[in-house]
Design a binder for these strands. Structure first.
Lengths: 246, 246
DNA sequence: CGGGGAAACAAACAGTCATTTAAAAAATAC
DNA sequence: GTATTTTTTAAATGACTGTTTGTTTCCCCG
């Protein structure tokens, strides 16, 4: 009401962060980008906490606190806890899937027949790339994704998560089947499923192999793992496929 | 005090083996035949619910209700929710590990050298056997075990769970290393780790492969899986091990 | 018989949970 | 400038959480 309202703000006892301190002036006149940072900050916090404590182990209060936002804002922006979880996945899923598809297309470019190792690498390399060079957000997301694959699937709200990746997985299986025409289609599916299981296991819970091998294997060394895992599963496919090379 | 309490006692529908409970501290010769069934019923209910809804998704009130027991009894018998979870695992872990060790000893009896398939089978067969013919309790336990392997390991209370199986896993790895003397020890660890990952994935979340293969693969058909998985991973080991047979 | 200890009961504790509501503030549109 | 929409704040809801307490019942041993 008062004409020139002096910025009189009641300091909350908890939040001391000055909000909206981003790069306000960058010579852009379309400055309608002020708010969205809260939404993103909630997503970031949710991503980090979900992967750390699991879905049920994380409360919206934890998330709000970590994001420096108000509790009700999670509901304002996302609707519910389940919707927030899906939003965390949806934010990066498409780009990740596009990366996988791109890598597959690249090794099959020009109709040439790739090696088994190339196809298997095309599936794990983009993921590892994100973990190593995508920043903390991507690192959390990938691990969360691996975690989702192992959650009790009775939770219907996370079914759409897996669906994101089904199509591109099918394309990989299709390509593997082309490489091994004498292999039963069923066995191609099994082989690739085992491959996925190893990958998600590795990304999700890196402690076990380190412990069991007394430190001889280090699951955190992703560069090495890419070589080891593609080599092993290529051998598996070749052994089943009955072909000597390709 | 109305003598007829609203709590109706249900007769246990399952035969309770008169288990000589060495529960309490020292060697007391007290043979109570009334008490143990409540403790077991709580364990059964916890086992079923933990695997269905996860640790955080299951409340002690859910468990008490399903067990037909009083809420406080979970604390009386087990101390806390985390202790109860550990008790669920501890109840069957030793027998399960013994089965695995027994199967390994059997295929290496008399110092003879087993085939790769035999060693790999010795690791999965006892587990599948329990799932198929061990009753509902074992079926729940095995799946819970697979679930634990995929839980956020920041939860320190479930670390001792995995430890149960580390020793026998090492024995299997040791045997595999003997079968492939030219293989780097590191690679043996990796291969067996991949194998474990596939198994736990399969037992924990059987929906994915069914969906991705449009029903061509059925993860519920454990008999078939044992054949498929041992064949594939045997091929992987042989390919890496560089040896043609064994 | 009574004592004793293990098991079962009933009620409460002190929080936390996801979710909602209504009003204030800020940003945008007109 | 005012009007309107979007975002933020603060507080409350009622149900549910793990855990503890004090008492009562049961059963065995003396």
């Amino acid at each position: 009401m008062s004409p020139e309202s002096p910025t009189e703000k009641k300091q909350p006892d908890t939040v001391t962060h000055s909000r909206s301190d981003g790069a306000t002036k960058a010579g852009k006149k379309t400055d309608r980008r002020k708010a969205p940072q809260t939404k993103e900050k909630i997503l970031d916090a949710a991503e980090a906490l979900f992967v750390q404590k699991g879905y049920y182990g994380t409360s919206l209060r934890d998330i709000s606190r970590a994001a420096g936002a108000q509790l009700a804002l999670s509901y304002y922006h996302f609707g519910s806890k389940e919707d927030l979880f899906r939003a965390v996945i949806d934010r990066r899923a498409d780009e990740n899937v596009a990366d996988l598809r791109g890598a597959l297309v690249r090794v099959t470019a020009g109709g040439k027949s790739p090696t088994v190792e190339e196809v298997l690498s095309a599936f794990i390399e983009p993921v590892v790339e994100k973990v190593l060079r995508g920043g903390e957000g991507w690192r959390n997301y990938i691990r969360l994704l691996a975690q989702v694959a192992h959650m009790p699937q009775e939770e219907s709200f996370l079914v759409p998560v897996n669906i994101h990746y089904d199509a591109v997985v099918r394309e990989f299986v299709e390509q593997m089947a082309r490489l091994f025409p004498d292999m039963a289609r069923e066995d191609v599916h099994w082989g690739f499923y085992f491959y996925q299981a190893a990958i998600t296991d590795l990304l999700n819970e890196p402690g076990m192999v380190d412990r069991q091998s007394d430190g001889l294997c280090r699951a955190s060394d992703l560069e090495t793992i890419v070589k080891k895992i593609t080599r092993f599963f290529a051998a598996g496919f070749r052994g089943i496929g009955g072909l000597q090379d390709r």
